[in-house]
Computed example of a mutant assay.
Amino acid sequence: MDEVFSTHRLDRRTIVWTNVTRHPTAQWIARQITGTFPWDEAPRYLIRDRDGVFGAVVTRRLRAMGMRDKPIAPAPPWQNAFAERLIRSIRRECVDHLIVFGERHLRRILRCYAHYYNEVRTHRSLNKDAPISRAVQRIGNIKSHAVLGGLHHHYVRI
């Protein structure tokens, strides 16, 4: 079974980074954190679960980047509600409806879903806008673009 690492910003619900591995290690997690945030644009805090894979290597990397590590309490999913909601959305809207053919395929699916989630999918908490805001198209013919092989659609005016 593949493990998924994802980070997202809470202010606009933006998925920042996703990656997949079969065998996560502290070194792999530290590389993901470095890939997620440029050193000069790292957030002040990183809220995370208490998975055993987070080790001293990850803590040192966070400190070196100027971030404070905020692990949630053991076993209360309500403390990490945004992450739990994102995981449910990915499962319900994406991977529960697709057959995954390995790590590379899952990585490609998640990258495509993150693009859809950030730029197309509307969110009620954002007044029915996408995390990456877009202009309202008022004139033109409506055209449908299939996303994730037709699992979702993006409607645009041409």
Rank of each mutant, 00 (worst) to 15 (best):
Y116R: 04
A73Y: 14
V95S: 01
P38F: 14
I90Q: 11
L86G: 06
I72E: 08
S89F: 11
G55I: 09
V53K: 03
V53G: 03
G66A: 10
G66I: 12
P43S: 05
N127I: 07
F37C: 00
I72K: 00
E103F: 03
V53M: 05
P71M: 05
A83Y: 12
A114T: 13
E41S: 08
A83E: 15
N127D: 06
G102N: 11
V100L: 09
G55E: 02
C112I: 07
T59P: 00
A64H: 06
T34C: 08
Q32V: 09
E84M: 12
K128Q: 14
T59K: 06
K128G: 09
R91N: 13
V100G: 10
I47E: 07
H105Q: 11
E103K: 11
P74N: 13
F54Q: 01
L98E: 07
I109M: 03
M65F: 01
I132C: 10
K143Y: 13
P38S: 13
R44I: 08
A56M: 08
F82Q: 06
A135E: 15
R60H: 12
G102T: 10
R104M: 07
C94E: 14
L46F: 01
L110T: 05
W78F: 06
N118C: 01
Y117T: 09
N118E: 10
A56I: 15
P76T: 15
Y117S: 10
A42W: 05
E84S: 04
P38V: 02
Q32C: 15
H123M: 07
L98D: 11
G102P: 04
L86Y: 10
F54P: 00
V53Y: 00
R124F: 13
V58E: 05
G66M: 09
Q32H: 03
R60C: 00
Q32S: 06
P131M: 13
I99A: 14
P43C: 04
A135Q: 12
Y113N: 11
Q32N: 03
I132M: 14
R85Y: 15
A114W: 02
I132R: 09
F54K: 01
D129T: 09
Q137L: 09
M65K: 01
I90L: 07
P38L: 04
H105V: 02
M67H: 02
I139M: 08
R50P: 05
V100S: 07
P71L: 06
T36Q: 01
R111F: 14
S125W: 06
H123R: 07
I99H: 10
I29P: 00
G140L: 02
P131C: 14
G35A: 14
K70A: 04
D129N: 14
E41L: 03
A114C: 09
Q79K: 01
F82P: 03
D40F: 03
Q137P: 07
H123F: 10
T36M: 05
K128D: 15
L110Q: 00
G52S: 15
L106F: 02
W28E: 03
D49M: 05
N118M: 03
L86I: 13
K143Q: 11
H123Q: 12
I87Q: 06
A26R: 09
L62S: 01
R31G: 13
K143N: 09
A114G: 10
C94H: 08
V57M: 05
T122Y: 07
R61K: 08
R91G: 14
R108A: 15
S125M: 06
